[in-house]
Protein backbone atom coordinates (compact mmCIF):
# COMPACT_ATOMS: atom_id res chain seq x y z
CA UNK A 1 0.00 0.00 0.00
CA UNK A 2 1.26 3.50 -0.70
CA UNK A 3 2.58 5.89 1.88
CA UNK A 4 1.74 9.58 2.19
CA UNK A 5 3.71 12.02 4.29
CA UNK A 6 2.94 15.26 6.04
CA UNK A 7 4.02 18.10 3.86
CA UNK A 8 3.07 21.62 4.74
CA UNK A 9 0.80 21.79 7.77
CA UNK A 10 -2.44 20.15 6.78
CA UNK A 11 -1.04 18.93 3.48
CA UNK A 12 0.18 15.58 2.22
CA UNK A 13 2.77 14.52 -0.31
CA UNK A 14 1.80 12.47 -3.32
CA UNK A 15 1.80 8.76 -2.48
CA UNK A 16 5.13 6.97 -2.60
CA UNK A 17 5.98 3.31 -2.23
CA UNK A 18 6.17 2.17 1.38
CA UNK A 19 8.79 -0.16 2.76
CA UNK A 20 8.09 -3.82 3.36
CA UNK A 21 7.80 -5.12 6.92
CA UNK A 22 10.14 -8.00 7.56
CA UNK A 23 8.76 -10.86 9.65
CA UNK A 24 10.35 -12.03 12.89
CA UNK A 25 13.31 -14.35 12.27
CA UNK A 26 13.22 -13.64 8.51
CA UNK A 27 16.44 -13.25 6.55
CA UNK A 28 17.53 -9.61 6.50
CA UNK A 29 18.32 -8.59 2.92
CA UNK A 30 21.69 -6.89 2.43
CA UNK A 31 20.08 -3.71 1.20
CA UNK A 32 16.77 -1.95 1.83
CA UNK A 33 14.41 -0.47 1.79
CA UNK A 34 13.12 -2.60 4.59
CA UNK A 35 11.64 -2.30 8.05
CA UNK A 36 12.87 -4.91 10.50
CA UNK A 37 11.16 -6.10 13.68
CA UNK A 38 12.28 -4.64 16.99
CA UNK A 39 14.08 -7.81 18.09
CA UNK A 40 16.02 -7.98 14.82
CA UNK A 41 17.01 -4.35 15.18
CA UNK A 42 18.16 -4.73 18.76
CA UNK A 43 20.22 -7.82 17.84
CA UNK A 44 21.86 -6.29 14.76
CA UNK A 45 21.79 -2.60 15.52
CA UNK A 46 25.53 -2.05 15.11
CA UNK A 47 25.42 -2.92 11.42
CA UNK A 48 21.81 -1.98 10.63
CA UNK A 49 21.99 1.58 11.94
CA UNK A 50 24.42 2.62 9.19
CA UNK A 51 21.94 1.61 6.48
CA UNK A 52 19.88 4.68 5.53
CA UNK A 53 17.11 2.62 3.94
CA UNK A 54 16.58 0.31 6.91
CA UNK A 55 14.21 1.13 9.71
CA UNK A 56 12.28 -0.59 12.48
CA UNK A 57 8.65 -1.56 12.78
CA UNK A 58 6.93 -1.97 16.09
CA UNK A 59 4.07 -4.31 16.82
CA UNK A 60 1.41 -3.12 19.24
CA UNK A 61 2.87 -5.03 22.18
CA UNK A 62 6.46 -3.85 21.67
CA UNK A 63 8.14 -1.59 24.21
CA UNK A 64 9.00 1.50 22.18
CA UNK A 65 11.45 2.73 24.78
CA UNK A 66 13.61 -0.36 24.14
CA UNK A 67 14.94 1.50 21.09
CA UNK A 68 16.92 3.62 23.53
CA UNK A 69 19.24 6.36 22.32
CA UNK A 70 20.53 4.72 19.18
CA UNK A 71 17.58 5.40 16.91
CA UNK A 72 16.96 4.50 13.28
CA UNK A 73 15.95 7.07 10.66
CA UNK A 74 12.53 5.52 10.13
CA UNK A 75 10.16 3.83 12.55
CA UNK A 76 6.82 2.32 11.56
CA UNK A 77 4.17 1.46 14.13
CA UNK A 78 1.81 -1.20 12.94
CA UNK A 79 -1.89 -1.05 13.75
CA UNK A 80 -3.24 -4.58 13.45
CA UNK A 81 -6.71 -3.07 14.01
CA UNK A 82 -7.55 0.62 14.19
CA UNK A 83 -9.28 -0.03 17.52
CA UNK A 84 -5.96 -1.01 19.08
CA UNK A 85 -4.76 2.34 20.39
CA UNK A 86 -1.41 1.26 21.82
CA UNK A 87 0.34 2.82 18.82
CA UNK A 88 -0.59 6.30 20.01
CA UNK A 89 1.23 5.80 23.29
CA UNK A 90 4.18 4.18 21.53
CA UNK A 91 4.41 7.15 19.19
CA UNK A 92 4.37 9.70 21.99
CA UNK A 93 7.02 7.74 23.92
CA UNK A 94 9.23 7.70 20.83
CA UNK A 95 8.88 11.42 20.22
CA UNK A 96 8.69 12.78 23.73
CA UNK A 97 10.65 10.26 25.81
CA UNK A 98 13.34 9.16 23.34
CA UNK A 99 13.46 12.39 21.34
CA UNK A 100 13.03 10.57 18.03
CA UNK A 101 13.14 13.10 15.17
CA UNK A 102 13.07 10.72 12.21
CA UNK A 103 10.07 9.65 10.17
CA UNK A 104 7.29 7.95 12.12
CA UNK A 105 4.93 5.93 9.99
CA UNK A 106 1.47 4.62 10.87
CA UNK A 107 0.97 1.39 8.93
CA UNK A 108 -1.67 -1.31 8.85
CA UNK A 109 -5.29 -0.54 9.69
CA UNK A 110 -5.03 3.25 9.72
CA UNK A 111 -8.32 5.11 10.04
CA UNK A 112 -8.45 8.32 8.01
CA UNK A 113 -10.77 9.94 10.55
CA UNK A 114 -8.10 9.46 13.21
CA UNK A 115 -5.61 11.53 11.20
CA UNK A 116 -5.49 14.39 13.67
CA UNK A 117 -4.93 12.07 16.63
CA UNK A 118 -2.12 10.37 14.72
CA UNK A 119 -0.29 13.60 13.92
CA UNK A 120 -0.82 14.86 17.44
CA UNK A 121 0.80 11.69 18.77
CA UNK A 122 3.82 12.24 16.53
CA UNK A 123 3.15 10.36 13.29
CA UNK A 124 4.17 12.13 10.10
CA UNK A 125 3.65 9.41 7.49
CA UNK A 126 0.65 7.16 6.88
CA UNK A 127 -0.04 4.04 4.92
CA UNK A 128 -3.22 4.48 2.88
CA UNK A 129 -5.27 2.13 0.74
CA UNK A 130 -4.41 1.99 -2.96
CA UNK A 131 -6.27 4.72 -4.86
CA UNK A 132 -7.75 6.23 -1.70
CA UNK A 133 -9.13 9.72 -1.81
CA UNK A 134 -6.68 11.98 -0.01
CA UNK A 135 -9.19 14.83 0.12
CA UNK A 136 -10.83 13.30 3.19
CA UNK A 137 -7.46 12.66 4.76
CA UNK A 138 -6.40 16.28 4.32
CA UNK A 139 -9.78 17.48 5.57
CA UNK A 140 -9.38 15.33 8.67
CA UNK A 141 -5.86 16.67 9.26
CA UNK A 142 -7.08 20.24 9.17
CA UNK A 143 -10.28 19.68 11.09
CA UNK A 144 -9.44 20.91 14.57
CA UNK A 145 -7.79 24.25 15.18
CA UNK A 146 -8.07 23.97 18.97
CA UNK A 147 -6.30 21.44 21.18
CA UNK A 148 -6.79 21.00 24.90
CA UNK A 149 -3.63 19.01 25.61
CA UNK A 150 0.07 19.26 24.96
CA UNK A 151 1.17 16.25 22.92
CA UNK A 152 3.95 15.20 20.55
CA UNK A 153 3.07 17.63 17.76
CA UNK A 154 3.89 20.69 19.85
CA UNK A 155 0.58 22.29 18.90
CA UNK A 156 -0.07 25.05 21.40
CA UNK A 157 -2.72 23.90 23.86
CA UNK A 158 -5.57 26.20 24.73
CA UNK A 159 -4.25 26.73 28.24
CA UNK A 160 -1.17 28.43 26.79
CA UNK A 161 -3.29 30.68 24.59
CA UNK A 162 -5.37 31.62 27.61
CA UNK A 163 -2.35 32.40 29.78
CA UNK A 164 0.48 33.43 27.43
CA UNK A 165 2.64 34.97 30.13
CA UNK A 166 2.61 31.82 32.23
CA UNK A 167 3.51 29.69 29.27
CA UNK A 168 6.41 31.79 28.00
CA UNK A 169 7.84 31.83 31.52
CA UNK A 170 7.65 28.04 31.71
CA UNK A 171 9.24 27.40 28.31
Amino acid sequence: MPLVKLNTPGGLTAPVADWPLLAEDAYVPPTGPVLVPLATWLAGRDTLKDRPDTGVWLAAGDDATALGDDLPAVVAIRFAAFTDGRGYSQARLLRERLGFTGELRAVGDVLVDQARFLTRSGFDAFQVAEGSDLVHFEAALGRFSVVYQAAADRATPVVALRHPSYWSAAE
Binding site: T83, G85, Y88, S89, F117, L118, S121, Y148
Partner: peptide, 13 residues
Amino acid sequence: RQWSTLHPEFTFL
Protein backbone atom coordinates in the same frame (compact mmCIF):
# COMPACT_ATOMS: atom_id res chain seq x y z
CA ARG B 1 -13.17 17.37 30.96
CA GLN B 2 -11.08 19.66 28.81
CA TRP B 3 -7.93 17.55 29.11
CA SER B 4 -9.79 14.37 28.18
CA THR B 5 -11.72 15.93 25.27
CA LEU B 6 -10.31 14.61 21.98
CA HIS B 7 -7.22 13.42 23.81
CA PRO B 8 -5.11 12.11 20.93
CA GLU B 9 -3.54 9.23 22.83
CA PHE B 10 -6.63 7.85 24.54
CA THR B 11 -9.41 7.48 21.95
CA PHE B 12 -8.88 3.75 21.48
CA LEU B 13 -8.22 2.47 24.96
